[in-house]
Design a protein around this nucleic acid. Sequence first.
DNA 1: AATTTGACTTGATCCATGTTAAGTTTAAAG
DNA 2: CTTTAAACTTAACATGGATCAAGTCAAATT
Lengths: 193, 193
Amino acid sequence: MGKELFTESIRRHVGITDEEIDSVWSLGIERRVKKGQYIIHNGTVAKKTCFISSGTAVGYFIDTKGEEYLIQFGFDGWWISDISSFLKGTPALLNVQAIEDTLVYEFSSEAISEAFEKAPSFQSYFLAITQNAFASFQARTLNNLSMSAEERYVDFCNKYPQVSQKLSQKWIASYLGISPESLSRLKSKLLKS
Amino acid sequence: MGKELFTESIRRHVGITDEEIDSVWSLGIERRVKKGQYIIHNGTVAKKTCFISSGTAVGYFIDTKGEEYLIQFGFDGWWISDISSFLKGTPALLNVQAIEDTLVYEFSSEAISEAFEKAPSFQSYFLAITQNAFASFQARTLNNLSMSAEERYVDFCNKYPQVSQKLSQKWIASYLGISPESLSRLKSKLLKS
DNA sequence: AATTTGACTTGATCCATGTTAAGTTTAAAG
DNA sequence: CTTTAAACTTAACATGGATCAAGTCAAATT
């Protein structure tokens, strides 16, 4: 069950009663997603935002040349969606895909609104995690502007030490904005020095 | 007075009564900032988030070499701060500076909390604008990863047509992640074609 | 065990953008 | 009005990282 993790994630940010947790939790729909399956498909409207109970998912963009760009990833206890699509009802730019067997709890925008009404502190929680997500994208933008590929890689490894195990080098390179070949060279250079 | 703009900005996202607007508005502190003055200084804690009533401000990072990187900018009706610092109470990474005479309304975190209590729909508004800010940083990350400098510049001009007048080329180049010289070259190339 | 497939490495070459530096235009300040 | 400084342009040269192409290695499939 993912409810403990869900509760813990909320209580890390706000005070909330067990009853409120129950009423919010009951609005989510459990879905088991096999490795390789899509959670959100680009071009369709993202009708759900997902709480990841276990597993790993990536959210990436594909350009006209078929090149893939990793925008976000998520593990146990993170939320994942295409937020622009979810909020505005526009077609998703991102594919969100499980890269291992993953258990998610899906919340529609109606479910989220209802949760906000039933448990106002859930809205405070939602604001807090959105602010965190905003801050981390801002930090990523800052890194992209001010750091070399090597510095970004070192920073990435420090920030997400567990990630190197779960994500392939292709995805990490894509997240950093470099080619897999460059990442490979860069790693061997770092090992030598 | 900036109250009309403030009201309009909120009502674009949520329903709110005049009384609620009044109670929120009264929590803000008016401050006139002259061109060149700082709104937030890097290294100090950002104690305020600011609603810009008129004028223009930039938020930028300075690296160890003294190089400046434009992270965000704001005009009439936008909010600006160093969000990470404001939320976590850590020293600000950004300088926020007026680049023309600017009128802002400052809200401390206590003021924001009080506003959320007095006017719950103000919290919904705050969530909505934070989600928008998140989405636009995500889009910027996507552009940085997938587009050439020239494509990013064209996209920037389309997205913020009024900006080229207000921001110097140095700031625009910095925002796009290229040198001012490259932007100059790129512009003359675009004019020819 | 043999084969296919995907992930990673390594080398050669190329190009977009950075860097340095000089010159020009514009705007601010005395 | 003059001076100074900042913003912008242009050119020559340097370089980080991309691209193209082979090759290695390990895991999955038959």
